[in-house]
């Protein structure tokens, strides 16, 4: 479904600043956003950097992987897994993170603000 609201894209960094499967953190206004680029799959994800369970801005420093087919990042603090596509915490389904539009436009990584 086409989004009804036009996305405002903000340049964040170059694709080459990101190592495949290793997160980085970007500042987007007041927000901290964790970006993960799975370059071999051409998949790029962006979620909150704030871990609501550990109460710290650390999710960009988690290890990326998959569990039962869901692409996840594990919090480096207490190891909860967050689905990178939906932001939902696998261990605590009542917890979920905000997901951000993100794209690689000709080697430039851009985050979208709705």
């Amino acid at each position: 479904m086409e989004s009804l609201v036009e996305t405002n894209w903000t340049e964040v960094c170059n694709a080459e600043d990101i190592i495949s499967h290793v997160g980085i953190c970007a500042q987007l206004g007041e927000k901290q956003v964790a970006i993960f680029y799975l370059k071999d799959e051409q998949q790029i994800y962006a979620i909150d950097n704030y871990d609501p369970v550990g109460e710290a801005n650390v999710l960009s420093r988690g290890i990326v992987g998959d569990l039962n087919g869901e692409v996840v990042v594990a919090s480096p603090l207490y190891k909860q897994h967050y689905n990178l596509a939906t932001g939902v915490c696998l261990e605590k389904s009542e917890v979920s993170l905000h997901c951000y539009p993100v794209r690689d436009r000709d080697g430039v990584i851009e985050l979208g603000l709705p």
């Binding site: 495949s20 710290a56 988690g62």
Partner: peptide, 22 residues
């Protein structure tokens, strides 16, 4: 090394011990 970096726990990645506040 780039092909090992993503495997490391944050402690190994930053070569220091993460504490509760990050």
């Amino acid at each position: 090394q780039n092909d090992h970096a993503g495997l490391q726990d944050t402690n190994d990645y930053f070569m220091a011990n993460m504490q509760k506040d990050g």
